[in-house]
Design a protein around this nucleic acid. Structure first.
Lengths: 343, 343
DNA sequence: TTGTAGGCGTTATCAG
DNA sequence: CTGATAACGCCTACAA
């Protein structure tokens, strides 16, 4: 018996079988041509191509996924879709994946480990061919175990293993350079707004700060370190607190640009001018750091590049090649929020 | 013959069939329980639930998509993944879709009609259950035709039809309010940085500007209108040009916040203070407009809400209900970049 | 080189 | 209320 089961619409969905009929070959041959799985005689190939064009056939990825086990989709775990930093990375991933025929599946984990696990489960249930985890919270262990099933590219940590590749930015060096820049401008009382201690990169940046002070024989003053949480408001509050504490300082290094923005506003509210009264240094080089008033000096972190590299590495992993990508080194961007200390 | 075809890994993928065996019922019954397709006796349901829990079974969305025609995924066409404005909308979409079990599939069309068509084709090939198009460039006609096949929610235009729902923000009113605000502060020479004329909303904002001037009996001066393209740099360039033109003005209304940022930098470079020398008004209320120096007066456009409403409407469309969502009205946010004109 | 015949995991139809 | 059984559209091992 012939059970007719059309979709809700009677739109003409062209199937591989129809192409086969049209061109007078078997479905397998069509499939082989589509995937380059085997050599096919030139003339058959021609007629199949013609049929494909004529019918406007587009392979169904869903069916492909079921049959072949490849969905041509890559799961991307990000922490926040609308973060100014991750946004650029996502764009990089999309740009790199698209020409290869892969589609990214973005999900946000909201810096929450439990939610990250849920996201990954969901992505694996959807049978993604690979997983890119942007600055995840999971343990290295779980990541390694996941990599046994599906190729994984992670950022923000050092990690190696089969089917696993890590891309790490040198946050320590970035923190060092930022601090060194201020020191070279003559600053010695440099406040530091730390990032969320949950972020390993925040801690690295802090270490860079401490290390640069040491290298310049400037005693580390814990009272000049105020906690932040990577958001604008925390930067603002941090400076408020710093000012209230009566600690003397001539420069501030915020562990990321967003906090630097908040810091700038707090300084403004207290009638302190940047950079005349206080030099301000950020970290990340967000798109709009260029358009602050005054434009923010910062450490350039190549978010877009990071995305492209992560995706490219994933493609290599998928092709059973060893990824070789290397993160660009941190680059100091001296703009107008920092200046030589007036004596 | 038994063709053994495991995936690349031998990971224990639990299938619906296995659940059926484990609980001693037919696969159909398991399916029915999973989908609530039909009433199932209480005891069978119990044992199936137990089996599901025991085996840790998770239905395979790919197979579901093939068999049932529903992929539980919604295609979302955005113009730029990393736009500060769209980012919030995407988050809203994700937040709304997630509890319903749907996953968004984000693609960027880069404000390009051809690329938008490609994106939509790709999404339909992937058999998304619905399509959300954020400020698309396609013709109303094509959109309507697509809506015959798959439910569509669009933003940024007025449009109705079967399986089609539109969500539109009152840009005209926003432009009117912004201008009116400046007028009420005593400004009469108000420059306008227009947006990309390709964006219909940009034109609406401009009309609002003109209309507010008219309402206040202020003659419209075309020399005070400078073209922009919605990006920071174009705002900066626009003010440069304005200043060079020697036109007198005491306030600037930029058609979006990003251009206002650029404008602010240009003013700063020309040693003009905001709001003491020039009042500056934006449009959108981006997340970081609050952290400009000084904080930017602007028109609040509820991007996150927009995303939620679009997704909620899609869910309604999917449930064969008529969406009823209404966009919130524009709200003026007076911060510190605008002030009363000194006489 | 090509065709045939399952099979991927689920849902839907139909007959009990 | 339940269970066979046939799709869904494609891929692939096997046979020719």
């Amino acid at each position: 018996m012939k059970t007719k089961r059309l979709g809700k619409d009677s739109s003409q969905v062209v199937t591989l079988d129809m192409v086969a009929k049209e061109s007078g070959v078997s479905p397998s041959t069509v499939s082989r041509i589509l995937n380059g799985t085997a050599t096919v005689s030139e003339d058959k190939k021609k007629s199949v191509d013609a049929a494909i064009a004529k019918l406007g056939f587009v392979p169904n990825p869903v069916a492909r996924g079921l049959a072949g086990g490849r969905t041509l989709s890559i799961g991307v775990v990000t922490q926040a879709l609308d973060s100014p930093f991750y946004g650029a990375a996502l764009r990089g991933i999309e740009d790199e994946l698209d020409p290869a025929g892969y589609s990214p599946l973005f999900v946000s984990a909201h810096w929450n480990q439990a939610s990250e696990v849920r996201c990954i489960d969901m992505l694996r249930a959807r049978r993604v061919d690979g997983l890119i985890v942007l600055n995840g919270r999971m343990s290295d262990q779980s990541l390694k175990s996941i990599a046994k099933t599906v190729p994984v590219v992670v950022t923000g940590r050092q990690l190696k293993g089969p089917g696993l590749f890590a891309l790490n930015f040198d946050n320590f060096n970035g923190g060092f350079q930022a601090t060194q820049h201020l020191i070279q401008l003559g600053h010695r009382r440099i406040a530091f707004i730390s990032g969320d201690p949950e972020h390993p990169d925040a801690n690295e940046r802090f270490k860079g700060y401490v290390s640069a002070l040491e290298a310049a024989h400037i005693p580390f003053n814990p009272n000049l370190v105020v906690p932040g949480e990577y958001h604008e408001i925390s930067g603002l509050l941090a400076v408020d607190r710093l000012l209230a504490s009566q600690q003397q300082f001539t420069a501030i290094f915020a562990a990321n640009d967003q906090m630097a923005f908040g810091a700038a506003l707090s300084l403004h509210r207290h009638s302190l001018r940047i950079p005349d009264d206080v030099s301000l240094m950020g970290f990340d080089d967000l798109a709009n750091s260029l358009y602050c008033v005054p434009p923010l000096s910062t450490i350039h972190q190549p978010a877009y590049e990071l995305g492209r590299l992560a995706a490219a590495s994933m493609l290599q992993l998928l092709a059973e090649q060893k990824p070789t990508a290397l993160m660009p080194a941190p680059v100091l961007i001296a703009r107008e929020s920092t200046r030589r200390l007036r004596v």
